[in-house]
C-alpha cells in the first residue's frame, strides 16, 4: 500500500508503488480520452481563442455529463448556450490537470507545491466521479456498498475490481486533501 501524502517544509510529498503508478497513469489517460473534444477547435481564431464552440451538445454519457454538468437546472436552452461558451475550456482545464498529475507519476516519490497538489486533487476527483458513475453510486447507501469491497483477493468480476480501484483512489485523494488542509492552515 502506498504511503499517505503528508505536508512538510518542502511541500506535500507522497509515495506510490510502481503498480499503483501504472494504475493511475491508465486511469488518467482514460479520462483524458473521454474529455478530448470530438471536434477540432474552431477555425475562426477569435472563437478558438475564447473557446467558443457552437457545435457542442449536452453529453449523452452520464459520466461525461457529471464531469461537464449543466450550469442551470430546468432550462435546457440557457444551459446549452452557456455550454457553448465554456465547455471547451472546461475540458481543456480538466485535461491539463490530468496530464500534470500523470507527469508527476514519473518517479516513485511525488513532491507537490500548492498548485501541483490542487491539480492532483482535481485529477483524482474526476477519476472518482467517472468510476462512481460506472459503479452506479447514486446515494450514501451505494457508496457504503462499494466501500465494503476491500479484498483484492475477491476481485473476480468487473464491479468488484472497479470498486477496489475506486476505494484506492478515494483513499489517495483523502490523504492528499488532508495534507492540503494542513498546508492551508500553516499558510494562514
Amino acid at each position: 500500500m502506498a504511503r499517505a501524502f503528508s505536508a512538510g517544509r518542502k511541500g506535500i510529498t507522497g509515495h506510490l508503488e510502481p503498480a499503483e503508478r501504472d494504475l493511475l497513469r491508465k486511469l488518467f489517460a482514460d479520462i483524458i480520452t473521454m474529455l478530448e473534444p470530438a471536434t477540432a477547435a474552431s477555425e475562426d481564431p477569435l472563437a478558438a481563442l475564447i473557446g467558443l464552440d457552437m457545435d457542442v451538445r449536452v453529453p449523452t454519457d452520464p459520466a461525461l455529463l457529471r464531469l461537464l454538468p449543466n450550469v442551470v437546472k430546468d432550462d435546457a436552452d440557457s444551459a446549452l448556450e452557456f455550454r457553448q461558451l465554456t465547455e471547451r475550456s472546461l475540458r481543456e482545464g480538466k485535461i491539463g490537470a490530468l496530464r500534470a498529475a500523470s507527469l508527476g507519476l514519473e518517479s516513485d516519490k511525488i513532491v507537490l507545491d500548492t498548485e501541483g497538489a490542487t491539480l492532483w486533487a482535481k485529477a483524482l476527483n474526476d477519476v472518482r466521479l467517472v468510476l462512481a458513475e460506472r459503479l452506479d453510486i447514486r446515494d450514501e447507501e451505494d457508496a457504503e456498498r462499494v466501500h465494503e469491497v476491500q479484498d483484492w483477493g475477491e476481485a473476480d468480476d468487473v464491479e468488484s475490481y472497479l470498486s477496489l480501484v475506486y476505494n484506492f483512489v478515494s483513499w489517495l485523494q483523502e490523504s492528499l486533501v488532508q495534507a492540503m488542509l494542513v498546508s492551508l492552515q500553516r499558510a494562514k
Binding site: A121, N125, R128, L129, A132, I137, R138, D139, E140, D142, A143, S170, Q173, E174, V177, Q178, M180, L181, L184
Partner: peptide
Amino acid sequence: PVNLMSYVSF
C-alpha cells in the same frame, strides 16, 4: 455521494 467532505471544505 462521491465528493469527499474534506475536499468540498478545501
